[in-house]
Every structure is written in structure tokens, then in C-alpha cells.
Nucleic acid binder design. Sequence first.
DNA 1: TTAAAAGTTCAAAACGTTTTAGATTATTGA
DNA 2: TCAATAATCTAAAACGTTTTGAACTTTTAA
Lengths: 340, 340
Amino acid sequence: MATLKDISAELGLSVATVSRALNGFPEVNVRTRNRVQAVADRLGYRPNRIAQRLVTGRSGMVGMIVKIKADMSADETFFEILTGLTAALADHDTDLVLAVDQENDPTAAYAKLLERDILDGFILNAPERNDPRVNYLLGRGIPFVMHGQDRDQPTYPTYGIDNKAVSAQAVKLLVNLGHRRIALINGEMGSAFAADRMSGFQDAMKARGLVADLIRNDAALQSHAYSHALDLLATAGPTAFVCASTVIAAGVMQAVKDRGLSVPRDVSVVAHDDAPPLTRARNFEPALTVTRAPLRDACEPLANMMIAHLKGTPAKDLQVWQNAEMILRGSTGPAPAERN
Amino acid sequence: MATLKDISAELGLSVATVSRALNGFPEVNVRTRNRVQAVADRLGYRPNRIAQRLVTGRSGMVGMIVKIKADMSADETFFEILTGLTAALADHDTDLVLAVDQENDPTAAYAKLLERDILDGFILNAPERNDPRVNYLLGRGIPFVMHGQDRDQPTYPTYGIDNKAVSAQAVKLLVNLGHRRIALINGEMGSAFAADRMSGFQDAMKARGLVADLIRNDAALQSHAYSHALDLLATAGPTAFVCASTVIAAGVMQAVKDRGLSVPRDVSVVAHDDAPPLTRARNFEPALTVTRAPLRDACEPLANMMIAHLKGTPAKDLQVWQNAEMILRGSTGPAPAERN
DNA sequence: TTAAAAGTTCAAAACGTTTTAGATTATTGA
DNA sequence: TCAATAATCTAAAACGTTTTGAACTTTTAA
């Protein structure tokens, strides 16, 4: 492996100048820079990351901890995130180190990785409401960025979507279509996103003088969504459903169908779509109207924010909320006249 | 962060002695060692990995590349392996860096990670027969260890089970029970393990004067296994099935049942069980007789072998074949008399 | 023509370890 | 007692960068 010394020896320059030339410092003569670059290319020079890291004090590694369930399965979105993040981090010469959290104490895995004392920071995702990991890391001054948001006034870098606005958008669309009995089939209330979806839903309904009494918070399984929807259809006669995910929408649409009703003639369905690989909103019958914000889109910003944060950008300048895009397809329509 | 210098200053010792004391070198006086250790403990000293790595020339990071399918799902065993490997590697102060392979060229992801020039080696798993990754890495002199085996005379470190013996064990058991028409529902022939299972099966049958003509190689899906078994039962009247996995066994047993037959009265079933988290052999009805070799057991040996290999142990001393254990349960029994 | 300013380069220190070669002290054998 | 040996410790180099502070060279301004 060629080193800076090799290049400097070959050109009769000092190591310092070679280093600066390759790192684009302005004070090096353009001719020298070119000569240096040429030799570096010829020798196939690649900087030794370890040496760089020793002197800069950073390790070039960030950690991420995968929460896995007892059956050793993880979130279906995991690989989506993994793929995007490793690619985006690689652009900053940074590696992603993974560890697995199977324990009850959600901070234990972080402690273990930190003890090894080699990570520059963490990337967190899927926060619970008032996530204990956040306080743990904040308390120790460990840099991290969060995909999502676990509290109202975060003091840490965060990238996510405005989940209250997501619900509000859906409600607005449906109300404009004449719906008044609107149900929300939400995720589990432990998740921060579900809490926001619910409060956004309630606020949006209230603002229009509607009652938000048809809300079910439960694990985002098709089977659960199916039961909830069937139950609501039987007892409360909603004309529209707002669904927290496409998987939930699948359950809801099945229930509508099994109830002998039709989408969108009798019942409208709107879902939020973070573009999971398996359940594609476009392939529903009819195709789903969604608020769309692909998870994949979060990876690059998250990586950039992590790097910026490590370089000193304060947290308050690293808080981004992406807007979900409303995509109208066939699953929404005017409220059935007779039910108004 | 306390450094060696801090400790040496406090004790009036040289940095060299402190380093040796903490690293257990024999030439340091036991009393000095204790004094050093005491101060190190008090100051909460932890060696700077980056500095260690600069001087030793190793990065302390090994790579693993996850092959994921187009739908962004991966092998169900992935997290099993991930969990075990990160834990085992951590004991050697080594981190696992993950990358994702979604491309057609299986070596592309390795090239990309190697270009970043920061990994000490790779851990490979799930080899195909004559896996192209092996030649790629061997050709470049990159250290790696393989979980499994892709060729007959491997020149690289490998840990796995003797897949030919696995088939042989199953055949032996069934023949001793009086079976003569034995089918093999195997995995896809692209995988190295499936090729070995098949040849082991054929050899074992032949050695007993039986014909091995009831073989199906296909993706290890329950649905495929179901069709193959149903087909074989209708046309060839096997009295026993050897299954490449518990998932396959599930399909086979369903087919036996749907055919109006009973396990083990009419048909015996033996499966290989690598202890996948979802399909537990013990929970079958009747419980499955299996050759058992948990994937999880491979993680620690693999990690140890990786480290040993990096420290210079030659490949030929790092080739271990674990034996699968035969576990007799309710799915096997004597061959039905009338069919012999 | 000369002093100041700007442009360019260099030597050396620093990061925190491990390791080599050598020095000092203690112990042993005769 | 003295040399040889063993035990213990040290100083310094090395790993490959980045960065500091200074030095040298060229250009500019008067």
C-alpha cells in the first residue's frame, strides 16, 4: 500500500504538502497539486483510514441496533433501511456497525456497544413515545440521530415525517369528499408515530366539528385490522377509514368486501404508505389512495445529518420534517349520499 | 479518556511497561502488574482501539454481505446468524460491518467494501456450488471464513456440517426400519448444501442396493414440498421422506395427511433441522425425527476461526465439520409391511 | 529599490498504542 | 567474590495521517 511518504519521496515534497494537495487545501500550488495527484493515482494511493481516524479522533463508525423479536424476526423494513443507510454512509467514508437487541432493557445493547468505545454515534429508529434510549444517550452526551421523533420538543437531530399532518391530510381529503363518519385504524400506541397520528386525527376531526370516536390502536397486522374494521362496520357505520399502513389497509379492504360493501362506492380507504417492499399500494384493487413518504428516502438525509452532527452542527439545525405526498387513486370517493 | 501515558505518569513507570503489564506479558513483575492494573481500573482505562489498530495493522472489523431478494427480504436465518456472530466477534474486540448485495454480480458488494480498504476479512455463508465469491476473494488474497463448503477440496477455512453424512444418517435409519422406497425432497441444487445432500443420499441408497430415483430439488418452500410429496405419493408410493429442512417437512406431512395417510404408520418423515426460529421440529404433530445441527452453534466457531485465520493460522487447520445429531421422535416408524 | 503582503512549502509534533533493542537490577553458580 | 544469567524495566521507533508554526519564495505597493 502506497503511503503519503512514498508520494512525497518520489516528488521531493514534504508529507505535509502531499497531504494538503490531496485534501484540496487552497494554499497548495495548482501545478504541485496536479503532480501529486498524478503520482497518487499511479501508485493507487488510498489513505489509511485508521491513521486518519487516530489523528482526527473519530472512528468513522456509527452504530445501529436492531430490535428483534423473540422469534428472531425483525421489522420488515429493516433491510430497506440497512441498504439505504450503508450506501449513504459509505459516501462519507463511514461504516455501519450493527448489534442486536434481544433484551428487555432497550438501552442494554447501546451500553454494550459503547463500552467497546469505538463508535462515533448512533442511528436510532422506530422510537417509542418518550423513548428511554433517547434519555440514555442524551445523558451520556453520545451523538445520535433519530428517524422519527419521540417527544414534542426534541433536542436531538431528527428526520421524519409530520405524522399529525399525515392524519390531517387524510381527514381533509375525506371531509372534502363529504365523509363525516371517519374511522382510524392505527398502529400500537407505544410507537411515537401512532400517538402522533392519533392526535393529528383527533385535532383534524375536531376542527371540522366531527367526533373522532372510531379509533382503534393495535399491532399493525392485517388480521387485527380486519377484525377492527368488521366490528366498526357492523356497529358504527363509518363511510371512510384512515389506515396507518398499507398492511392495515389490506385488512380493512378485506373486511369491507366480506361485509358485502364496495370500495370506494360505500366506503373510502386512505392509507399511509412508507413504501414497504411487500405491500404495494398501487397493486391494491382498487389501487390505494395514500399519503406517501418512502422510508427509503430517509436514509440519505439521516446519514448526512449524522455526519453533520458529528462535525459539530448543533441539533436544532438538524431537525427535518419531510412532507408526505397525497396520492389519489381509486380507493377514495364521495361519501354515499344516503348515509350523510 | 485515560491513556497509557496517564497511568505511566502516575506510577513513574514507562509506557512500555504499562502496556505490557496490561497485556499480560510474562516479563513484568507481578507486583508492578498489580499496581498498574489498580491504577488502570481506577482511571477507567480503556485502550484506544484505533491506536491499537494502527500499530498492529489490523482494523478489527470483518465484513459480511447479506444477499437480499428483490422484495427486500432476506433469509429467515439472517438474524439468527447476525445475533450469534456479533456476540462472538465482540469477545475478540472485533466488529461486524454489514453490506447488502442486491446486484446480479455476487462479487460486486465485496469489491465495494474492499475498496474502502478497511476490513480485515469476510465471513461468507450460504455458498453456491463453486461459489464465485470464493475465487474472487482467494484470487485477491483476502482472508475469509465460510459457513458451509462450496467445493470438494476447500483451501479456505470452513465450518459446516457434513451434508453427505446427514443424508446417509437419515437413509441408514430408515433402511434399518425396513424402508426401501425412500424419497428425498431437497433444496435448490444451486446451493452447495443441497448438492451434497443429494450425493450423500444417492451414495447411501446405492450402498444398500436401493435405487435413488425419488428426488426433487426445488426452492425450500412449504408449498413446493407439498406438491412434490403429493405427486410422489400418487405415482411412486414412497414409504419414507428425507427432507432438507423442517419447512419442507411441514409441506410433506401436509401432503401425507391430505392423501389420507398417516405419519408414521404409513409414511415416515426425517428432516434436517438447523433450528430455525419459526419452524420447530419438536412442535410438529407427530414430533419430527431429525438430524439436528443448529445454525446458532456455528457462530462462535466461525468467529474464532476468523480471528485465528487473521492471526496467521493456515487454512488447513481451520476446517471443521460438525456432526449432526440424530434425534428420534414420532415421525419415523417401521415400514408398513404390505408395501415391502 | 525595498518593505510588506501574499503565496507556497516544510519540519516537527501529535494521536495512543505496540514492539525492538538495550539498559539496569537482581539472582545464580563457582 | 565475580562473572554469567535471569528478571525487570526503559527509551525510542514505528504505524500513517493531520495540523501547527515557521520558513522560504514570489508578488505587490510605494
